[in-house]
Design a protein around this nucleic acid. Structure first.
Lengths: 225, 225
DNA sequence: GACAATATATGATATTTGTCATGTTTTAAC
DNA sequence: GTTAAAACATGACAAATATCATATATTGTC
């Protein structure tokens, strides 16, 4: 089994602030899992009791609302920690995590890492910083949800995916989301998301091939209002 | 000047985890301010470089969106800390804070409290817990914004205000928000908020007297869909 | 490569929400 | 108390978005 202290992924998250000794101990108790596209990592209400370090792949964090629709709150990617909130409270998960492509994650049990969170102040400060960043992002999303049109939000989502995950060889966005996923990020009906993508296509801002989307005019997308 | 170590307010926030020595030091460098209703405590983009401990009163945290409307993200009340995020990053404030009634706050400069955040792990863990709670709340608001109707959101806001601030002697909500504030919490046009309040009045779920609102049928409000 | 399952696409229509206009009430200042 | 400013209220209409129906395309499976 691979070792945390040699794992390059930890450079991207708070685990980088652990000492070599701490890493070795954690390496001994972690479990590595492979998760297939579409599989559930954990569900709303579940007791996860640990954090996942995402070695590869992408997943969505979402919450089921009363009307039966899933609202995607955040995309979690390679290098991120997943389930950090489970460390600081006894409550169960507020969101569900579902893989958007094949993933590899390491699970670190809560009881193994809690000591470090209490003792290693550099580590806990790092976690605090990450949480503060997440909070800022969530607050910004609230403002967008409340004040921007569906078209603007969808355009911004495309730009977000482009900025964070880039293109593949053929120039298509490297992360493939279904129209339903886009709708669930933007907070609209699937048909509305589809309709707006068609519209963006007609306006020459994007092009598509099946589920793949290519951004043709970034400036144009940015200036939608 | 009053002393932090004797201040009862700190029991309600993370400052309760500071040692007596830490409190005495902080007491010596804090400044107490009185803020009148409507006054700005800090603005988006400002460098606040410290936290405010709210001794009395209520303020709104909001962000100006591109279309010129203010979106209220959170209400901060007596006992809360304000500006916690300024402690964990160098960036300027993401939100503006404006008093909703007369307030009394104590300002603690960042450089005085940063050491405690790094050294006192109980304190930093407390801050972390609060941040995690805020994050959960923000995520829940995103879901509500995306998936619920304006009427539902407004009803929930009324219930929220009722649960958190209660009634005055005459049975009216003890916090008086303008119709515009309600609109800015819910993320709708002021006229829409007014219209829906009128509707709720006709349905017998609330009654009003000027800006004052009385909840007449809590169950009814809760069951709007 | 055929087939079923799933996802995408689009029209027609209903509903929700926003905008503009205008009048009334409330609040706060003198 | 008067009065001007601000906040509240409501109608008429426009725009945005959701819903329902149905057709087509794509994807994964055998």
């Amino acid at each position: 089994m691979s070792k945390c202290e040699q794992c390059i992924i930890r450079q991207f998250n708070s685990l980088k602030s652990l000492t070599k000794e701490e890493l070795i101990r954690i390496s001994g108790c972690k479990t590595t899992k492979t998760i297939k596209k579409g599989e559930i990592i954990f569900e709303e209400g579940e007791n996860i009791n640990g954090v996942f370090c995402v070695k590869d792949g992408i997943c969505k964090l979402s919450k089921l609302s009363a009307n039966g629709k899933d609202q995607i709150v955040k995309l979690v990617v390679k290098g991120d920690l997943l389930g950090q909130r489970s460390l600081v409270g006894e409550e169960s998960a507020n969101l569900s995590a579902v893989a958007l492509n094949d993933m590899e994650v390491c699970f670190i049990p809560k009881h193994e890492i809690m000591n470090d969170l209490q003792q290693n102040s550099k580590f806990s400060f790092d976690v605090l910083q990450q949480m503060a960043k997440d909070l800022k992002e969530s607050d910004d999303i609230i403002v967008n949800m409340a004040q921007k049109s569906v078209k603007q939000r969808l355009a911004e989502t495309l730009i977000y995916v482009y900025n964070h995950f880039g293109n593949n060889d053929e120039g298509f966005l490297d992360v493939i989301l279904s129209r339903e996923d886009y709708a669930n990020i933007v907070g609209t009906a699937t048909e509305s998301a589809i309709r707006i993508l068609s519209q963006l296509k007609k306006e020459g801002l994007i092009s598509t091939s099946g589920k793949q989307i290519k951004i043709e005019d970034l400036k144009g997308l940015e200036s939608i209002e």
